[in-house]
Design a protein around this nucleic acid. Structure first.
Lengths: 249, 249
DNA sequence: CGCCTATTTGATCTGATTCAAACAATGTGG
DNA sequence: CCACATTGTTTGAATCAGATCAAATAGGCG
């Protein structure tokens, strides 16, 4: 009933929260002591569905999760890609009925935390309420940025922007190696995230490759020209509200 | 330094919060006692801008406010239309730097509340923290629904959906009269909200009028056929997380 | 090897944009 | 109370970014 993480640094949740705020020793200890049931889940499984009334939160430890909803006409919109350290359904603490679904994109390791445990954690460490509230607000800021992209930017800008965002977020939880981050998504998933068709995503990717901005193969994104990628993506990381002191280098 | 509302029922904030949760007598009293500076603001003025570090929140008392952001290429995306009772920048309690702007669409009456006052309110009434957190999460749910529309629905569905949402939200704060709600927006603003061009919004509106679903003139929306409007808008109000007990009739 | 899923390519079509101009409503100052 | 300016709506025509359809190719894996 405990996650076996050797140290706070290796715990994805602590890493994630420290990328957006400061934690005291006490708070870190309380987070590490949070009781959870760890479970391996294979790819393409729903963890929570629209209409569910969850009694637990899921902390993503390894893998990628999508937050999505489907139109009456069967079209899917992905709202967010979640990475290790995220608690994508933290909102279920405040909102009883899910208005969207969460599903794995890859095999995942997930820690399920009972709401009652979350609540007593927040009761005993009121400042952590602020931290989790803040986290859900940053999620909302990311939604807005995606909305701006979908509503008002062309396909090439959208794709470049998404890649920039994923690099920044994966970097924050220690998953960047050199110019490289894991990004095990399909082109269909990218299309559903950006409001495009798969075919068009494919052609746009070819364009970005042709211009030597990036390589992306077998689930690994290799940024060749970060500067120009951010320019074509009109990317300004301010909306991620990451704490700059952790990125001095 | 107080809003002159004769009773709790007439206070937009209390009305709004009661549409999504229950409030105790104590909490209601504390909300009514919240010190605020009331100000009239004319149309098309920014209240907060991207990059600002607000030290106060604004409670909308009368009028309409848009939450928006502008592309490098000068295209605007509106993320939300805010109605009386909303605190559109409640997020500034947790997030120091604004990543988007808020501007009036009509002449507005706004109550500015110092962050310190909000914080002491939440400290003394911890359950209100949950309420405000919940409110920001419902805002996020609305973002997601707009994103779904912009990314995956056609123009007609988008426009119909937006009108349905606005009716439900305005009804919740007592602004509905018969089949009629105030909706003083321009077609350009609707276009910027839905990721469409003004011309196309205009043609889509004509279609909705031709099919006898609604009238919309001089800032007043008149729903002629609610049932069919919700069908063409694929509208399911679940995502608004309104408390159904206030809508028994 | 053979199956399944993901990527790629080509051809065609269309919903929505853009540009440009007319028209209507509202407000302003003389 | 009217002339004029301003802002919002409507119309028409031309164009395009991206969708759709269909089929071929390439990878990964039991």
């Amino acid at each position: 009933m405990r996650v076996p993480f050797s140290s706070a640094e290796a715990h994805p949740l602590v890493l994630k929260l420290e990328s957006i705020t400061d934690l005291s020793q006490d708070e870190t200890a309380a987070l590490l002591a949070l009781p959870m049931r760890v479970q391996e889940i294979r790819a393409d499984q729903d963890i929570v569905r629209e209409g569910d009334r969850p009694s637990q939160c899921c902390l993503l430890l390894e893998g990628f999760i999508a937050r999505y909803k489907v139109t009456y006409k069967g079209k899917r919109q992905i709202f967010a890609f979640h990475t290790p350290g995220d608690i994508p359904d933290a909102l279920s603490l405040q909102i009883k009925i899910m208005d969207h679904s969460l599903g794995t994109l890859t095999p995942c390791k997930v820690g399920f935390i009972q709401h009652e445990h979350m609540r007593s954690l927040l009761r005993e460490h009121p400042r952590l309420t602020d931290v989790f509230w803040r986290e859900t607000l940053i999620d909302a800021a990311i939604f807005r940025e995606w909305m701006l992209a979908i509503g008002r930017r062309d396909a090439k800008t959208r794709v470049a922007h998404l890649f920039c965002e994923m690099v920044m977020r994966l970097r924050a939880v220690g998953l960047q190696t050199g110019n490289t981050v894991p990004l095990p998504l399909t082109q269909t998933e990218i299309a559903d995230a950006l409001g495009l068709s798969t075919v068009h995503v494919n052609r746009t990717l070819q364009e970005l490759r042709r211009e030597n901005l990036l390589e992306w193969d077998r689930g690994v994104l290799d940024v060749i020209n970060w500067k120009r990628l951010t320019l074509t993506g009109e990317f300004d990381p301010a909306y991620l509200h990451q704490d700059p002191k952790h990125f001095a280098a």
